[in-house]
Write a protein that binds this DNA or RNA. Structure first.
Lengths: 217, 217, 217, 217
DNA sequence: GATGAATGAGCATTCATTCAT
DNA sequence: GATGAATGAATGCTCATTCAT
């Protein structure tokens, strides 16, 4: 957990000094407990009592650390954003594919690895994307989306530079298209309980990208 | 309000006979009040008291009509789905454009008219799509999405028949692409409070469709 | 149903003129419905709605007939007392046994016939005797007990006159003993769910009377 | 208050750990308050609010201690049974009379002392015996009756052994007779508001026992 | 007179937050 | 600093009674 964030959150009165001084171990336990429970249920339905029990601290301590339930949520969102970003910053440092289409495909697919290594974070994100409730969660989603779009932007701009993509197309449109497909796939794969047939995630992604690259006419 | 739905909901114990027998006017008042408040806030945060006040009935009556708060929500969702469907069924009866790309574009754009004429329904749908909370809302979203995908399917299949679309592309992929872009646009247009620049809805839609139809290479 | 009682209850504002003017048939339906439901549950747990449904009248009518739920109960108790009394007044007119001990035994046993012919009344009485709740039910129990004690008194006084019973024993003590055993037997037979072995009602009654008549020394 | 009972009730989820950890003083205050109010009124008519006020705790605390109103009642019944039993177990340890008839008489009369020292418990028991309502109270009455019958059984069996009672009489009949008279006397003394003359409790008890011992012929 | 829709006072229960230890 | 007991505002739901038709 990035201590700089804790320091900043303390200034913003989201966490207290008492929380900052906690051992990293204890902070992490609280983070993990909140992640699990806010990833399972809607803000209103998550009880401080349960988070406390899961984190093996007292309800009183939780309040002492964050002042309000809402702040605990804000702290959580902050760390998840940070973890997501550092995970994918790192991914792009070690990216092995080169062609624009492949880079987009691999970026999306790499979320499978993220999910494997960060089950809690992934579930929380899904909850926020598609089943969130609390007014604050909107900001979390926007921040994650912005990060994702930023990555896509870099890939696309590089594709334009290297003449893999037509220069007459505005980058922002492509970002929107790819990001929408990404999110649409996520929803279909992880949430849609409807009768419509479940497509294979990888196959569908591959074909959709082909379509967008080649056109459908 | 379609009385057949009320009759069905009565059988399913979602509404009571007392509600069924209410004057259409009163039913509508209650529907409108629920629509407004469930469109503004999360299930847990919506108070029966406020719905009652808005609909100018007593809390006791509300309970008498629906038995439970949850049933009031279910009733509401049912009517919104019905209204959405009948609105767009009607739209397709009077559709004036012919080319596949135009048909998709017009379908999406026609939601502006839907929004103008059905502000409450539209806001409620956005709330459900992107800020819902309650477990039941998932089913609502799936139903609306399925309806939208059904429309897209018909347009696309016609496009294939008339040789406007390549025959080697599976329809389901195209549905996913167009629907995702549609939803992505909706989100960006109506919910995204992020710093990223707001794109013009119509222009963006037009360009995105062009891109998908022509390919980006 | 004795119309004189209805007239008296109207004067006492327990029932309204509207109720009095009802057809005997309808009055009886309401009586039967109240009997059934107040015999099954505690005053507070009996809903006017259910009585109305059972009697096939509207809740509004019930209120119109009695003004208050409590009055409906009072009416009911009054009729049950009356029915009980006329039933056993009649029993004593046709009594066939002569010996004091047999008369007491037969009186108690004849409640089996009362139960067979007046299931509703009998269950209601049990409910009142042992599982009542509402302050008013105390008065009902006392009235029934007084009637029963009156019968016992007559039997015992006759026994004294005819030299079947010792003259030095005060009648009131004998009444208390026999009545207590009667009620104790009723409770054990119809209500006691305890582990203690269930005794056969008739056999037990017979033996207990023998004991009291013969002494236990 | 027997702490072992509290521990057992905690296992049975009738009371919470929070309640168990309360100071004996506070536990007793709550017990006394519940005793008073459940002894005055029917379950449904007893308000948590009033118990809380009487015990000088908050309604929230009451719920924290017992979870449900019903559990508070169960706790209360448990302690009353326990208190009754230990009181009379102790009574029999110090019993001074010897003759069977006297032992029964003294046992019944000793309830006067119980009443003096345990006014709350006594009133609660009367309420449960004769004016209870709630389905659970049946179990309470049976348990108290069983305890009383157990005492009578021991006295009677000893009487048979010591040839004070005829050996040809089944003990269970005698238990029924004496217990019924006991309960009948209680009812007449403490509850009967009827017009029939009130008998003197002690005198009546004495005479009734005489009658049963000597026979009435 | 009959109906049943409308009402709202009333209550148990929930749970974030406070606070004493 | 940590704890968890104490609090009470808040809310969904019940149901006798009222009242308009």
């Amino acid at each position: 957990m990035d201590e700089n964030i804790i320091v900043r959150l303390e200034k913003e009165k989201v966490v207290t000094a008492t929380f900052r001084k906690l051992s990293p171990d204890k902070k992490d336990k609280i983070y993990k407990a909140a992640l699990k429970l806010f990833g399972e249920d809607v803000f209103e339905a998550v009880l401080l009592e349960n988070i406390a029990k899961t984190a093996k601290v007292s309800k009183g301590s939780l309040i002492q650390y964050f002042g309000f339930k809402e702040n605990l949520f804000l702290f959580l969102a902050e760390i998840v954003v940070s973890n997501y970003k550092s995970c994918f910053d790192n991914y792009f440092l070690n990216e092995s594919v080169i062609r624009t289409k492949d880079r987009i495909e691999q970026f999306v697919l790499s979320h499978k690895i993220f999910r494997k290594n960060n089950k809690g974070e992934f579930d929380f994100m899904l909850k926020m994307f598609f089943e969130n409730s609390y007014k604050l969660s909107g900001s979390f989603v926007s921040r994650i989306y912005d990060i994702q779009k930023e990555y896509l932007k870099k890939i696309i701009e590089r594709g334009v530079q290297s003449n893999q993509l037509r220069r007459d197309i505005k980058v922002q449109y492509l970002i929107l298209i790819f990001h929408s497909i990404f999110i649409g796939l996520l929803r279909e794969r992880f949430l849609d309980k409807s009768v419509s047939q479940k497509n294979d995630f990888e196959q569908t992604l591959h074909q959709c990208l082909n379509i967008v690259f080649n056109g459908i006419k």
